[in-house]
């Protein structure tokens, strides 16, 4: 009987801990990235892209993710963190791969180079970036997590960790351009 009660308490405890973790995790933080978008961007219609990511990450570090951008689609990238104050301007950079043939000692070889195509440092720390690709490509997004500030997520309050989100949205590109 006593064993049964202890086992029951243990199970309830486990369920409680699991649900507390789930509630406090960084799940779907990327959904809040639209908050930092200017009004004219918020009103536009975009489809949510399932490649969006949210993660727990250390302050002051660089978070990087990669996704596949399909040909003939326009993408909008927006980044955000759950830092409560002073983190509305987050630096992010976007890269793509270029395949180039480079001469080597005894012939040539295909080299994949990761080239920066956008850095919001040189765009007044804009909160989003819109692009389309004429052939499907692998894209990388690097987010510089701010050094200061505090996470709004209970679990990471007063810690060195915050939540970071990369929201990806897409829409079909029109054949005639924009």
């Amino acid at each position: 009987m006593k064993k049964g009660i202890i086992f029951g308490i243990g199970i309830i405890g486990l369920i409680f801990i699991q649900s507390a973790i789930a509630q406090n995790s960084c799940r779907k933080v990327h959904n809040f990235c639209t908050n930092a978008l200017p009004d004219e961007e918020q009103s536009k219609s975009w489809s949510f892209d399932n490649q969006s990511k949210s993660a727990t990450f250390e302050k002051g570090k660089v978070y990087e993710m990669s996704f596949i951008a399909y040909k003939d689609f326009v993408y909008r990238i927006a980044t955000c963190t759950d830092i409560t104050e002073g983190a509305d301007k987050i630096n992010f950079e976007v890269f793509h791969n270029e395949l180039v043939r480079k001469p080597m000692k005894d012939g040539s070889r295909l080299i994949k180079e990761k080239i920066s195509i956008y850095n919001n440092n040189s765009d007044n720390m804009n909160s989003f970036y819109k692009f389309r690709v004429e052939k499907s490509e692998k894209i990388y997004v690097k987010v510089n997590i701010p050094q200061g500030g505090d996470s709004a997520t209970k679990q990471y309050k007063d810690s060195e960790f915050v939540c970071v989100g990369v929201l990806l949205q897409h829409r079909k590109a029109s054949k005639t351009g924009f």
Partner: peptide, 18 residues
């Protein structure tokens, strides 16, 4: 001046070591 990550594709032509 800019940082470039390099990723070697499976050789299409030669198999030179990089």
């Amino acid at each position: 001046p800019s940082e470039i990550d390099v990723d070697v594709e499976d050789p299409v032509g030669d198999t030179t070591e990089v």
